[in-house]
Design a protein around this nucleic acid. Structure first.
Lengths: 143, 143, 143, 143
DNA sequence: TTTT
DNA sequence: TTTT
């Protein structure tokens, strides 16, 4: 039995993070993946899919600290569909992706000078790739 | 942008296959993936996830011919959530997996003597084989 | 950074399992994946790829107990290339797949009556799936 | 049969692209994936894996135009091991990843104004890259 | 609601 | 609704 999802997409809004009674963190975020194809008339059509991502514990804490609207993420996880009763008493279903792994692929869009996504004076030395300051290279990130 | 799903699971019921006006085949099937884990009391708990799989064209025609309830499948595809209005006028969502690739990993259960997928006298003893004659070994299968 | 491999293929020979000094088990096996395509002349060509799979600890112990030549496996893992010096002092490289997850998809081929993978007198009951006794359902298996 | 590889890593050197007699493009590049773990002494250890990536036709042409040393890539493909005879007549093996899909996740390092990472009008050129509209073409993305 |  |  295998249930595996791999996504690379953009975060639609700032994530929501909450803490359960036992202190466990849970993060929810919306991730968009867009697929382009040509229709019968040869016109390019973009189709965007929105995914509900759920992250627990350590991943949720990283999300709380670093993940913002607009950021590009890699998510690896599992599909889970949970049911709930709506106000009409109708059973409804929500499909979510429970993340087992996450990678930040960008700092998202720039919002202002108070939250730079690249430190001043970043190196341009020959062996310094542009993502030298990518969050996953940072010492204080737990992955 | 990446939107990729990989599943190995069991088919919950015989697939439904229909043909659109243009003659294009579409198959729908339900696939179960079960995950086992131990709860706080150390008891083994099985959690089954049901996936709605949609297959088009050639894959749908293979499904029509060969895929039966109980069969184990490998599915590779993409997540798609489509919306519809229920009888209360409430917008509802259904998440499906659009298959891009499929592999049959077993013949599923036997339905009759005229097309046995298991030789007479085959065992259900603990060491019984699963896919002693997996379809992908057959010369007349188109994949 | 992501380094992920997913394979479904057949085991080419009985695995080799050894135990390190500390008692840690390591298994090595060869897995074949075959891809079919049509060449320029429209002839079907099979191309088989052989993968060196390395499994550690619990997975290696499961391999030792259950995995045989001919069995079909699902392997999820990472690519690792290690170097060594051959008898001419030339640096050589071997690429292996370190397995993080394994699923047995069949019992492999039948070798003889002393270790049948299909017991005589087995049931043909309608609801008996061919993989009724899949190894991953065994109680003494750690997954 | 499934043979699938998913990588996210950094390009180690500018790719090499050549054209076969029939005009088909082939690109070769080295991609590094680094995995961090803690050793027995609790020290963080980085282990870098180098992958030989081979891309054909349209993907190779995109590589020629846009992929540079230092860039971060998503690669989806298959493992292929090919053999050759070295100068001592010893059969040797090289394992490569044949890419079926590629996504640029960064522009790599900046070299100077004479080598912009977005050509004027690139996205509307006849031979525009497959993911010409990918967010990684955006000027306002900070990587 | 993201991104290009 | 599958499978063990």
């Amino acid at each position: 039995m295998v249930n595996k999802v791999i996504l690379i997409g953009n975060v639609g809004a700032d994530p929501e993070v909450r803490y359960l009674d036992g202190g466990v963190a849970v993060a929810n975020l919306r991730l968009a993946t867009t697929e382009s194809y040509k229709n019968k008339n040869g016109e390019k059509v973009d189709q965007t899919e929105w995914h509900n991502i759920v992250l627990w514990r350590g991943l949720a804490e990283i999300v709380e600290k670093y993940v913002k609207k607009g950021m590009r993420l890699y998510i690896e996880g599992r599909i889970r569909t949970r049911s709930w009763d709506d106000q009409n008493g109708v059973k409804r279903y929500t499909t979510e992706i429970y993340a087992d792994n996450m990678q930040m692929l960008s700092f998202g869009r720039q919002e202002g000078a108070d939250m730079p996504n690249r430190a001043p004076g970043a190196s341009t030395a020959p062996s310094a790739p542009m993502n030298a300051a990518a969050p996953d290279d940072s010492d204080d990130l737990p992955f």
